[in-house]
């Protein structure tokens, strides 16, 4: 017995033709998609003033810049070189600490705001125009970039960390309100029904039927947000809203080359540490949840 296929078998040929027709239709669709995509890319390239010649001409500057900002560390005088590279370590650490505090206070205020608003914004607990209004408000808060809020607040409150904190808090409130309300929408409604049946008020229902179900998820999201806000707070200084950003932008603008790399490495290291720490904490929180 042979497994070879008889190509003259009419039923088989019918199938083969149907298959090739289908494939041709799919191919045409893919081709059309590719044409639309390429048109979009060309339009975008025109809009972004992409100039390959200019790029090729200046491309060598990028590695040169990277090399320039690197410090000279000789093995013989390693420690004194290191000391020279981080000549302002204390000042930078102070600013870095301020950055972390801005992120912390902003996250905390934003989380509290998001917590208060998420119940009215959720589909199962909120209702009517209050829900609609809360949702639009949260949407506004998270769509306007935080640095735009910071720009406005710097004019209203003056330079310093305060506008940065407020900007981060508002943005965080918008983002967390949405995430929180999604968590609330996924809860088990039976405890809520139980509380309603005993005649509890809306606040009592939230406190005893909803909050215990969602708290660990909320904490996990807040930690994730803290990490994002540390990155956000590190650039707040660009518009004068406190933190390490003000030294960084000054170093970049005034070509203090080695300072740029020193500050950048500090920021990257901090972000990585926070990343690692919050991940550990979140895993601990989630395992706590599973144990119950």
């Amino acid at each position: 017995m042979t497994l070879a296929i008889d190509h003259n078998d009419p039923t088989l040929r019918g199938h083969a033709e149907a298959y090739s027709r289908e494939m041709a239709a799919k191919r045409r669709q893919t081709l059309l998609g590719a044409v639309v995509f390429i048109a979009c890319v060309l339009l975008a390239a025109y809009g972004a003033e992409v100039d390959p010649a200019k790029f090729a001409e200046n491309a060598w500057r990028f590695p040169k810049y990277i090399l320039e900002i690197m410090p000279t560390l000789r093995p013989a005088t390693f420690f004194s070189d290191l000391k020279e590279w981080y000549w302002n370590l204390n000042g930078w650490l102070k600013l870095l600490w301020q950055t972390l505090l801005i992120a912390y206070v902003g996250t905390l205020l934003g989380a509290v705001g998001g917590f208060l608003l998420c119940f009215t914004a959720s589909a199962n607990l909120g209702s009517g125009w209050v829900r609609w209004g809360t949702r639009r408000f949260l949407e506004f808060c998270r769509t306007v970039p935080e640095i735009v809020f910071a720009l406005i607040f710097v004019i209203a409150f003056g330079l310093g960390p305060l506008p940065g904190v407020l900007a981060i808090a508002i943005h965080t409130m918008g983002a967390m309100g949405k995430l929180f309300s999604e968590v609330v929408e996924n809860i088990d409604m039976k405890p809520v029904d139980g509380m309603t049946a005993t005649g509890a008020t809306w606040w009592q229902t939230i406190r005893f039927a909803v909050v215990p179900q969602v708290l660990s998820n909320f904490a996990s999201y807040a930690l994730l947000r803290f990490e994002i806000n540390v990155r956000g707070a590190s650039i707040m200084g660009f518009v004068g809203a406190g933190g390490i950003g003000q030294d960084l932008i000054e170093a970049i603008r005034k070509f203090y080359f080695t300072d740029v790399s020193a500050i950048l490495f500090l920021i990257i290291l901090t972000v990585m540490l926070i990343d690692y720490g919050t991940e550990r904490l979140r895993h601990a929180l989630l395992s706590l949840e599973h144990r119950q």
Partner: peptide
């Protein structure tokens, strides 16, 4: 952050959307 990269690239290819 993208804003920091933007600052660096402005030094390399000059001001502008590129």
């Amino acid at each position: 952050d993208a804003l920091i990269w933007a600052l660096i690239w402005v030094n390399v290819v000059g001001l502008g959307p590129f």
